[in-house]
């Protein structure tokens, strides 16, 4: 009875999508939201060296959730793409749209052709000259691109957190307000007891509209703590001493976990990613059976079809 079973394309795609979604939901969320002076990114990430948020080009930043090695590859490819474009043509010819399309191609191709889809979800954001020119693109594991406005939450319990951000978000928030909302949202998952996340556990960066060329800036330590402590609202917070250029090297390289594939694996379910792969392989049976049994939290972010762009968050 070694006959290969027929697997319908629908089933195949669904299995892959389920697999990717499961991997993405296991990590911690990233919140991206617009504020009056640009776009802010926040995530819970105790590592100072392994970033989930990074600079791609002058006005473009990248944020990702999922497997570290996979999105790190994408990030490096993005930086190369942007730098090469900018060198060949002009710096102004590097746009988030072009980059998002390039990523979409890669993700889509991998989703269809490789044995395993990339377990990542990324945001490519570009800060424009005015708030109306800001662009936020969200790309999912299958290459779907969604043009988002105002805010995006991805990874972990994205839907739950997204609702939380949606309640609090309004136009023209100050940086302090936006970050407090983001951090409150990040701490709100997992049941109903909200946690407070300390500044040291956060990775926060902004694309600042008013910076001359490279708009990307990481907010660390004191600057961040001040902003979160609600005193640091308004322009004084934004103009605080920048910790911008050498993002990593003035900090002791912390307890990084370089050996682990996933920087963001939450401690309780630090199962390595080979385990769920068993699911899709035996796809002809009833693949949906095992997901509820092993991991409850997955039920949240799941949507039925693999290509839902997640329109409302």
């Amino acid at each position: 009875m070694n006959m290969p079973f027929y697997v319908s394309p629908e089933q195949l795609m669904k299995d892959r999508a389920d697999f990717a979604r499961k991997g993405i939901a296991r990590g911690r969320s990233v919140v991206v939201l617009a504020y009056d002076g640009g776009i802010a990114f926040a995530t819970e990430n105790p590592s100072r060296a392994l970033h989930k948020i990074s600079e791609i080009y002058d006005r473009i930043a990248f944020a990702a959730v999922g497997k570290y090695n996979e999105f790190e590859n994408l990030r490096v490819a993005g930086v190369r793409y942007a730098d090469m474009r900018g060198y060949s043509y002009d710096r102004s010819d590097v746009t988030a749209r072009g980059l998002a399309n390039a990523y979409a191609q890669t993700l889509g191709t991998v989703f269809i052709t490789e044995s395993k889809p990339l377990e990542v979800e990324i945001v490519v954001a570009e800060v424009g000259a005015e708030a109306a020119d800001d662009q936020i693109y969200r790309l999912t594991y299958d290459g779907t691109v969604a043009d988002e406005h105002s805010f995006v939450v991805m990874g972990g319990q994205a839907e739950q957190l997204g609702r939380r951000v949606k309640e609090g978000w309004r136009e023209d928030m100050s940086l302090g307000e936006a970050l407090r909302l983001a951090v409150a949202a990040l701490g709100s998952g997992e049941g109903s007891s909200p946690r407070t996340i300390e500044a040291a556990q956060l990775e926060v960066a902004v694309l600042e509209r008013d910076r001359p060329r490279r708009a990307f800036r990481r907010l660390t330590r004191q600057v961040l703590a001040d902003l979160l402590a609600e005193g640091g609202e308004g322009p004084s917070g934004a103009a605080a001493p920048a910790d911008d250029l050498p993002p990593a090297d003035d900090l002791p390289v912390g307890p990084a976990t370089p050996g682990m594939g996933t920087a963001d694996t939450a401690p309780p379910d630090g199962v390595d990613s080979t385990e769920p792969e068993a699911g899709p392989k035996s796809s002809d049976e009833s693949p949906t059976d095992e997901s509820p049994t092993e991991e409850k939290p997955d039920a949240g972010p799941d949507k039925s079809s693999g290509t839902t762009p997640g329109a409302d968050h």
């Binding site: 600079e55 060198y87 250029l245």
Partner: peptide
């Protein structure tokens, strides 16, 4: 000069340090 500037910036972005 243009290539040199690019290269330094590229290194900085890829490696995360100067």
């Amino acid at each position: 000069v243009r290539l040199f500037q690019l290269e330094l910036e590229h290194y900085e972005k890829i490696e995360g340090s100067l």
